[in-house]
Simulated scan of single mutants.
Amino acid sequence: MYIGSTSEWGLRQMVFEVADRAVNEVLDGRAASVDVTLTPDGGVCVADDGPGISIDETEAGPGIEALLTQMQAGTGAGGRHGVALGFCGVGPAVVNALSQRMTAEVRREGVRWVQEYARGVAAAPLTEAGAATGSGTTIAFWPDADIFGAAEFSFDGLVERFRELAFLNQGLEISLTDLRRPDESCSVRLRLPGGARDFVAFLDGHPAASAPMDTIAFEYEDPRMAGVMKVAFRWCSCPEKRVRSFANSRPTVDGTHTVGFRDGMTAAVIAYAREQGLLTTTDPDFDADRISEGLTAVVSVKLDRPEFEGSTRGVLGNAEVRDCVGQAVQDHLGRWLKDDPERAAAVIDRIVQGARRD
């Protein structure tokens, strides 16, 4: 239940549970990058160049052995400044329990420490293994074949999720390397400072220079929702709608942030169309689905106290977020429509033509 599945999806969650701490080390400025490697023998190695996990328990958290053998409910950074990658945020101890083997190496304060585990239990005491070059933590694990059978890690699935994180957190750098097939090894390094604007271009398949329409992008902090929003969107030439939403870097299927986005879009377009006489007093309002045709958008909010509906955390429930996002989108889109009347007319005309076809 802690990773959601014994299929490939569950294997992926194991990687996220181990990578969670390393990613937050980078976001907190204590590390520069995270390196994830799929090894030839079916394992996964997650390494960072931070200060290294504490050997013993401190005020900041558990020591390395406790972290890897005792389930830490709520593991992962809280608030808007961190990300929680795992399915339930229970930490790497669950991964250890589901692995036939796990190894840990900590390079801290000039000393290298190592320890090995078997199915969640330490196989030997934490051992000092000489001087360390640099600092950091490396954790490797090999999933238990009796639990996961022939399931394999999906390199593309890992890349997709880590790419999202790199777009949503511009200071994050992650590399992924697949060494499982020596003749087909591949590697990708993700550092995407363009943020939500470039995320839209990626989803749309058009770089900004060749896009058929401007990308409207903004970042805004609203104290009413105790958080910050990052929103980017543009219309393209195809009818398909691509709207991706996130709350504290976690993918969502719906929620108050997406409802607010739709509210703001609809209000701005209708107000502009009526001001310009493109909708008469007898014409009905455009509906949100019609306005969203051909839209590519990224809607991300980071909140101090996010509230999710259901155990899978796929729907954001903070009521105040709807009005905050809606007003911000209405203001920014309304301003863009007035400042660029030629492209605004193209957007409205497309919506009008679509409504007439209905």
Rank of each mutant, 00 (worst) to 15 (best):
E219Q: 15
V188S: 13
D183N: 05
P182C: 03
H206F: 08
P212V: 11
Y220D: 11
D198K: 02
C236P: 02
L190F: 09
S237G: 12
P239G: 12
C186Q: 15
A211N: 01
P239Y: 09
V188N: 13
E221Y: 01
R224L: 12
E240K: 13
P207C: 08
K230M: 11
P193S: 15
V231T: 07
L203Y: 11
P223N: 10
I216P: 03
S210P: 00
H206G: 01
A201H: 15
I216E: 02
A232Q: 07
P182K: 03
Y220H: 15
V188C: 14
I216Q: 04
A232H: 07
G195Y: 10
E240V: 12
M225G: 04
P239M: 14
Y220W: 10
F202K: 06
I216W: 04
D204L: 14
F218Y: 10
T215A: 13
W235L: 06
E184F: 06
G195E: 13
W235Y: 09
W235Q: 04
P223S: 10
G194T: 04
T215G: 07
D198N: 09
R189L: 12
A196W: 02
T215H: 10
P223E: 11
F233K: 01
A209I: 07
D214W: 00
W235G: 00
P193G: 10
G195W: 10
P182D: 02
A211P: 09
E221W: 00
P207E: 07
A208K: 06
A196P: 05
S187N: 07
L190M: 15
A201E: 09
C238S: 13
S210L: 13
T215I: 15
R224T: 12
C238F: 11
D222L: 07
G195D: 13
V228D: 03
A217G: 03
L192K: 04
M225N: 03
F202V: 03
V231F: 09
E240S: 14
R234H: 08
G195K: 09
E240D: 15
A196K: 00
H206Q: 09
M225F: 03
F202D: 14
V231E: 00
A217M: 08
R234K: 15
R189M: 14
P212I: 09
